[in-house]
Every structure is written in structure tokens, then in C-alpha cells.
């Protein structure tokens, strides 16, 4: 069974990803409840929230690392977790994932890291693969570093190399897990620019899990905000519009880094009674 995302049934034209009533749990502890959202093709979709809010857990369900307790995740109308092992593998080949810290395969050089997916899933000869690898590394500003091992690079370079590997198969959807978490402000800004360039040049749908406010406001077209107390989705919309118009004090505190009011994390549980 080979699923083609382009030709697959698409009941909602323009919707690239649909998260439908997803509930996630670790054992008996529910960490996300009834999440629903639709993401258009070519959008930068940001999953935001405080640490421990379930952002990475939702991402794990989206990239096939953890099945949801309930609900469905649809890519162009095709349910990922109902597609069977082969169907899921076919979909995964259309994804690119950048993990926190890069998650480069430590025993391989950068070039080998980028080349492996190409060797596995394309019929390119070694010279052609080498050419693509050099192109991908150049795209992330790492031209000439192909023979380096991940351990010989800085955190920012590893992150960019991870992005080169994630882009190896020209994915339709790119997932980023806390891409700026270990980066300095300049590297973080450059990575944000790179994400926007990828969206504009490749037309890829991009899913970013982050709590980095500058990144959220700089790159997000569409965002959801997860509430760690109720384990539900607390807000949805364009992050800049949410910042300007949302009346939710908790969201405002998050989006203004608490610069405004010192709102208790859960309304109604103040210190005075």
C-alpha cells in the first residue's frame, strides 16, 4: 500500500493536517484532552505552551512515535494511525523531523546523516546523492562540513545539520521540536529566517513546537496554546492577533512574558480569599 499525499482523498480542500479530537495519555494519566485543529497547506503552525503542557507529546502523535488514546490525525484527509504499518511508513517518507538538539546519528558524519534517507528511498547513484547532500548542507550554511562528526560541531551547527537531514527527501511537512531551545538569540533568529524561507520556497507545511516567544511571533501563521492545568487547547489563531486581541489573561501573560499583569496561572486561585 503506497499512499500519495498529493493524490490522496482530500475532503477538506486546502487542509493539510487535521487533528481530530485527540486525547493523549501516559498510562492512566491524561496529558492532552480533545485537541481539535485544522492546518492549511503551506502554513507555519505553532504548538505553543509552557513546559510540561503536552506540546512534544502532541508532536509525537503527529510523527508516529506515540499513538493517541483517542482521536485521529489526518494528513490530506488520510488518517495516519488507521493507515496500517505500510501506509504510515509511506506517509513518514513525506515528513521531515528536526528533533531538539538535532538527534544526528552520532556514529555518522554530517554527509552520511543526510545521505542515509536518500540511499534508503531513492534510486540516485552515489555521485548524485553526494551532490544532493552538498546542496542540503549548503542550504543550511554548512557547506564544507560534510566530513565532520556531530560531536565536532556546536549546538547551532548540529541543529542546522539536523534540518539538512530533515529536508533530505524534500518533505511536504516539516516538524520542528523546540528548534531554538539550545541556541543563542542570533542562531535562533537565523533558524527562524530559514524556516520562513523553506515555507516560501518549498511550499512546505511546517509544524513547530516551541515556547520561544520571539520565534512564535516571527514565524507563526497559525498557533494553538495548550493549557497544562486542564490539558486542553486554550486558544487558537494567529499568534500576533492573539497577542493584540486575546482577553485571556493567562495567554496574555505567556505572550508578553509576564510583562503585563502578574496573573495567577489558574484564574480564581489567587492568594487572597
Amino acid at each position: 500500500m503506497d499512499m500519495d499525499l498529493e493524490t490522496a482523498e482530500d475532503p477538506a480542500k486546502g487542509v493539510g493536517i487535521e487533528i481530530r479530537n485527540v486525547t493523549m495519555a501516559y498510562g492512566s494519566q491524561v496529558v492532552l484532552r480533545d485537541i481539535r485543529v485544522r492546518v492549511k497547506r503551506g502554513e507555519v503552525f505553532v504548538i505553543m505552551g509552557v513546559s510540561g503542557g503536552g506540546k512534544t507529546t502532541l508532536l509525537k502523535a503527529m510523527i508516529g512515535l506515540k499513538p493517541p488514546l483517542q482521536g485521529q490525525i489526518l494528513y490530506n484527509g488520510v488518517s495516519f494511525w488507521d493507515a496500517g504499518e505500510e501506509g504510515r511508513q509511506a506517509m513518514l517518507r513525506r515528513f521531515g523531523v528536526l528533533f531538539q538538539g538535532g538527534a544526528l546519528w552520532s556514529s555518522m558524519t554530517l554527509a552520511e546523516n543526510v545521505a542515509l534517507p536518500l540511499e534508503e528511498y531513492t534510486d540516485l547513484n552515489p555521485a548524485e546523492i553526494d551532490e544532493i547532500v552538498r546542496l542540503k548542507l549548503a542550504l543550511v550554511g554548512l557547506a564544507g562540513f560534510g566530513d565532520y562528526l556531530p560531536s565536532e560541531l556546536s549546538g547551532g551547527m548540529r541543529q542546522r545539520a539536523g534540518l539538512a537531514r530533515a529536508m533530505a527527501l524534500d518533505p511536504e511537512i516539516l516538524f520542528f521540536d523546540e528548534p531554538s531551545a539550545s541556541l543563542d538569540p542570533i542562531s535562533s533568529r537565523r533558524l527562524d529566517d530559514l524556516i520562513l524561507e523553506l515555507r516560501d520556497s518549498l511550499g512546505a507545511t511546517i509544524v513547530v513546537v516551541t515556547h520561544e516567544l520571539p520565534s512564535i511571533l516571527a514565524i507563526g501563521d497559525h498557533a494553538i496554546f495548550l493549557d497544562p492545568n486542564t490539558h486542553t487547547m486554550r486558544a487558537e489563531g494567529n499568534p500576533r492577533e492573539l497577542l493584540e486581541h486575546s482577553a485571556d489573561p493567562y495567554l496574555q501573560e505567556f505572550l508578553t512574558r509576564g510583562a503585563g499583569s502578574r496573573t495567577p496561572l489558574t484564574p480564581g486561585t489567587g492568594t487572597t480569599s
Binding site: L92, G101, W105, L116, P117
Partner: peptide, 17 residues
């Protein structure tokens, strides 16, 4: 184990390897 900690195993799975 170290590859698991560094999410390298997850990276294989997301490439359907």
C-alpha cells in the same frame, strides 16, 4: 541507550527506517 537518550532511535523511526 545513549542513542535513545539523544532521540537518534526516534529519528530512525521518523524516516520509516
Amino acid at each position: 541507550g545513549a542513542m535513545k537518550v539523544n532521540e537518534e532511535i526516534d529519528a530512525f523511526r521518523t524516516f520509516a527506517i
